[in-house]
Design a binder for these strands. Structure first.
Lengths: 331, 331
DNA sequence: TTGAGTTTCCAAACCGGTTTGCGTAGCTCC
DNA sequence: GGAGCTACGCAAACCGGTTTGGAAACTCAA
């Protein structure tokens, strides 16, 4: 037998579909007797309204979508949990879409979620250029962007303060009397850009020059950092500290240092970024910058909710969530 | 201005909405001229069909839902990636719902996804009892259950072979001549049950008795295992190896052993379960059982797809994905 | 020239709800 | 007893598409 429809409920209850709808939604008064009959029929049939039909008519889905670039990066699941905790009390739920590094999927998810009439959208994109996003979004669905994108011209935006945080971390090393501080993971695009900037800010602020040999190009992976650091050590570059673009790179750097017979943190201090679970598990435990995943999620969720309800109106906002330095063993 | 509707496209193209629909779907022939005009209008308006309306009529959403208990447990994101990779080529997409340990949310997500007419459902539930799930699901939407639930009476099912895997791991320790092997994380419910069973199978198979002092009750956390193992060591229980219910517990156990002055693996060998990222990052690197998250995801996805397309029909199937032992440094 | 067949398009029904307009009944209050 | 409410319930319109039945125009063979 097929799913029961509202007409089935109405028939059993002996009323019209209209009355069933009003009895269930409470948008118009219904007599207690009719209401009781409706509820009995609902229970008997185990009736649940077809949300597609409801949403089509009401243009509300009570759902927001969170489009993330990589669900296996532990940062994003923690953000998602923050989002969920921020919106669920208001009766909204979040569906998560992971583009898994597939550029085409980013655009596909956004347009698809919009065509499914989600009430709001949170996106963090790696691959799709900003201009393309502008073409994808409609103006009606509230949108919050997460990450280091440009100014908030088409949406609200939540981001970390990577540059300031890394500068602070670098000064932590300087205060220890370390002067040969390397940066591993240097690129000028993506999240690495701001972090490298913070490193430079701190050194220049302390009156030190930027030694190109200490700005070590690498990616965000453990293996990449291991290779890059090993190469620098083989070359004989003097190093007494390393600021890494993220925790995985820091773990790779520590591996490379250990392989080369250096002791962390005595010979070389290492600082990561993100504070992933593994940061507290490795030995020595990683000194790192907390990326505030959960908090960023709650901030995104609350902001989006305010836009959906109309509580917040007016120009787009930018909210910065600073990331504190977590001092453990490696620096 | 509001989202363009199919009627807007029809008006600009100078044809009827019917013809627009046929031109876009190709379900009936349309003259080349009409088709060209339709496509021009679509482009001009940047028209995208309202998927709510499409799905309401066609009863297809090209979407499956994956309901997981905890998105911050790295096992599930990896499963999700496997699912996505298995179904996306067939034109389906997956939305992820994390219940975050909230029991009410489990039922809510299932019923909600069904009322949104998803084409299929993959669920892994911690809290909702099996009987309750039976009441929630309708018979029309294909369903795959993941995890150690009972026999597949209402759905297909994909699970690991924890019992066999842990028995194999335990025999690995026995072959090293270790005889005082403990199990940390003992409970008789959930995933722990099968793993404890495998431990017992191996010992009994080798002619050894089960020493109750070596069956150490704990949970799935690092801290819990640390506490439990420390207590056993203080008590003076002789131990030369530990099989842990998961990797986090194994890491906690290693911490406790180190704190007590024992060397891993020389004095005490340790084996985990799951092969989370951190397993390869800690020192000593963890010998563990690969939980095959990605493979389980692809298996779930393929199975579900076959049910959706009707390619697979008939009685519910159970697919077992065995998990191999990954030998690293800790055992 | 006519009838059958084909091509092309449209009007209308439909999916399953919500919302609106209105009729009727019952009640209060002059 | 009639005006004016309120309470209640139903029919019909609507959301935005897809699908179906059939009309109109055109082709082609007999």
């Amino acid at each position: 037998m097929p799913r029961p429809r509202i007409a089935d409920v109405a028939e059993i209850a002996g009323v019209s579909p209209t009355t069933v709808s009003h009895a269930l939604s409470g948008r118009r008064p219904v007599s207690p007797e009719a209401k009781a009959k409706v509820h009995a029929a609902v229970k008997e049939l185990n009736y649940r309204a077809n949300q597609l039909a409801v949403s089509l008519r009401t243009n509300r889905t009570q759902t927001i979508a969170f489009v993330m670039p990589d669900i296996t990066n532990p940062f994003y699941p923690m953000v998602a949990r923050g989002v969920q905790d921020a919106i669920s009390d208001a009766g909204y739920q979040v569906v998560i879409c992971s583009t898994d590094g597939n550029a085409a999927r980013e655009a596909a998810f956004i347009t698809d979620m919009l065509s499914r009439a989600v009430d709001g959208l949170i996106i963090d994109l790696f691959r799709t250029p900003f201009e393309a996003v502008e073409r994808l979004v409609d103006r009606h669905t509230p949108l919050v962007m997460l990450g280091p994108m440009k100014a908030p011209t088409i949406s609200d935006r939540v981001r970390g303060d990577d540059r300031v945080s890394v500068a602070e971390a670098t000064r932590h090393l300087l205060r220890q009397g370390r002067t040969r501080i390397a940066f591993v993971g240097a690129t000028r695009i993506g999240p690495a850009a701001g972090r490298l900037g913070g490193y430079e800010d701190a050194l220049l602020g302390a009156g030190l020059a930027i030694d190109p040999k200490l700005v070590i190009r690498s990616d965000y992976s453990r293996r990449g950092a291991h290779t890059a650091v090993t190469a620098a050590l083989v070359e004989g570059v003097p190093i007494d500290a390393i600021v890494c673009v993220n925790d995985l790179a820091a773990i790779g750097a520590i591996d490379a240092l250990r392989d080369a017979g250096r002791v962390v943190p005595d010979d070389v201090a290492v600082i990561g970024f993100d504070d992933i679970d593994a940061a507290a598990l490795v030995r020595p435990a990683l000194t790192t910058i907390d990326n505030r995943a959960y908090e960023k999620g709650t901030v995104c969720g609350r902001l989006l909710l305010q836009r959906i309800t109309g509580e917040l109106d007016g120009p787009f906002r930018e909210i910065v969530v600073p990331g504190p330095l977590i001092i453990r063993e490696s620096a």
